[in-house]
Amino acid sequence: MKTLTLLVAHARLMLAELFRAPGYVIPTVGFPAMFFTIFAMPYARDASSADFELLSYVAFAIIGVTLFQFGVGIAAERGRPWDRYVRTLPAPPEVRFAARIIAALVFGVAAGGLVAVVARIFTPVDLNAEQWMLLALYALLGGIPFVLFGITIGYWTSARAALPIANVCYLLLSFAGGLWLPPRMLPGIAAAVSPFLPTRQFAELLWSISGGGSRNAFHALGWLGYYAAFFAVVAAIGYHRDEHRRYA
């Protein structure tokens, strides 16, 4: 039970710090719902288009949380004197990683949940209980490769570069992945690369819930699995490289 106490202590402190940084909270939690309101609501005229838009923007929200929480968060913290101090405390290193995952879940639920709430109130979204459950499950599963992508950014870029890089990846991949515009409306190059992007596959996974999208959930999960494996390797190399340089 000691580990659980530690995990709670670490997650609490991490969340307290994050929640007091408006520059982090607003874009992470607020942007997806705001974008949804501005860009998606006008197209959400019937149940099927509203479902489609909701599912796209939940993906957008989850991707934002993972890239910012893991990418920018890790890059900013790994060189901090405070991080060095925390390592001297008697806690296994896994605790800190687990705490970060909890923090990401909290923000993921907040950002994705806010989109869902807005969609539920202002658009004719029509998902049944089972579909909502499936959305939560797929959002978590499909978020895994993006967690690893975020960790990759966190360990391979400097604190200064992480934010712009995460932003560019976030916006470009969201756009080309068809999260803002349906794939058939994407311009030339974006349409050509779109099927190969993890964002597109994440979207396909979520779209499958309401019967939208072009392929079934298993196909998308397969692609996301490959992406997860790829980013797991690159992230692990980055992690060990940084550990070795800083703490060998």
Partner: peptide, 27 residues
């Protein structure tokens, strides 16, 4: 073992009570 962070390496937004309670949870 008890140690100090280097110089003033604290997360600025937190309070002394929060960081000490956090450290205390480890002992």
């Amino acid at each position: 073992l008890g140690a100090t962070p280097q110089e003033t390496g604290f997360p600025d937004a937190l309070t002394p009570r929060e960081v000490t309670a956090f450290a205390a949870a480890h002992y």
